[in-house]
């Protein structure tokens, strides 16, 4: 029976146009839509549930109290998470160091065997939450994980390297893992199941200690990368463009 905790981070949705606020040193998040870090944290939840389905245990999903957190938590419940926790504090301006410290204080109380989180997020400016959390808890960390398994009393993880090489590592639990991809892509949860979860499960709210923001760099300025080095555009009809491309291929010596 494994006690699995998943830290689900929320990130501003990149589908929305990003703007920089008046200070010029931070994103303007007034209208941000906070969604689960789909690329990774969604996989972390899935991995937690898969592990529970396979080896038994409980899955606690814990998320910062941002708009959208309820959605994330109830969706996790609909997938099979047992306990939902929302941590209250002003997270919209927090950094990962602060999040890690605040969450470690709470997670410590759960005495988890396993803590899963997404390997990274697009707004990590001061490192990723997983390893920061691991160190705050004094636990080992392995990131870029794409599979976890309990075999013969040993806990094994698959760590991905570029090019598809995988290292199988043995880790003493409790430990924190940064999930790169769950063994299966996150499942679909029907809206009716989420609605059901809203009725049958509840979100526990916990207060974070004061946020300690130290450890992050100070940002002086944010900007959108100028497209100075823009490609030379080839114009024309498909036929014309094809002719230009072929000429180019010849010039570059590949034809």
């Amino acid at each position: 029976m494994m006690n699995i905790v998943v830290l689900a981070k929320l990130v501003p949705d990149l589908v929305e146009e990003l703007t920089i606020d008046a200070s010029g040193a931070a994103l303007d998040l007034t209208f941000a839509r906070w969604i689960i870090n789909e690329l990774f944290d969604d996989h972390a939840i899935e991995q937690g549930i898969l592990l529970k389905e396979r080896s038994g245990g409980t899955v606690t999903v814990i998320a910062p109290d941002l708009e959208g957190a309820d959605d994330v938590l109830f969706t996790a419940a609909a997938k099979g998470a047992d306990r939902l926790i929302k941590v209250r504090s002003d997270f919209s301006a927090a950094n990962n160091h602060a999040v890690a410290r605040a969450f470690s204080a709470i997670i410590k109380g759960f005495q988890p065997d396993l803590i899963l989180t997404g390997v990274q997020a697009h707004n990590d400016l001061d490192g990723s939450a997983g390893p920061l959390l691991a160190e705050s808890l004094g636990l080992p960390y392995v990131g870029y994980v794409s599979g976890v398994a309990l075999a013969d009393g040993k806990f094994m993880v698959k760590k991905e390297y570029p090019g598809g090489l995988i290292a199988e590592m043995e880790v003493t639990l409790p430990a924190v893992f940064g999930i790169q991809a769950a063994e299966q892509p996150p499942r679909y949860v029907a809206v009716s199941k989420v609605r059901q979860a809203m009725k049958t499960s509840s979100i526990e709210e916990m207060d974070a200690s004061d946020l300690d923001l130290s450890g992050a760099p100070e940002i002086e300025r944010m900007f959108q990368p100028e497209a100075a080095a823009h490609a030379e555009m080839l114009e024309g009809t498909p036929e014309e463009v094809s002719a230009k491309l072929v000429a180019l291929f010849k010039e570059l010596g590949v034809l």
Partner: peptide, 21 residues
């Protein structure tokens, strides 16, 4: 099938988008 989550990737993406946006 939907409640069971037996939907193909593209459909899943479309439904997720419809839910969110």
């Amino acid at each position: 099938l939907v409640v069971e989550g037996t939907v193909d990737n593209q459909l899943q993406k479309a439904l997720a988008n419809l839910g969110r946006y």
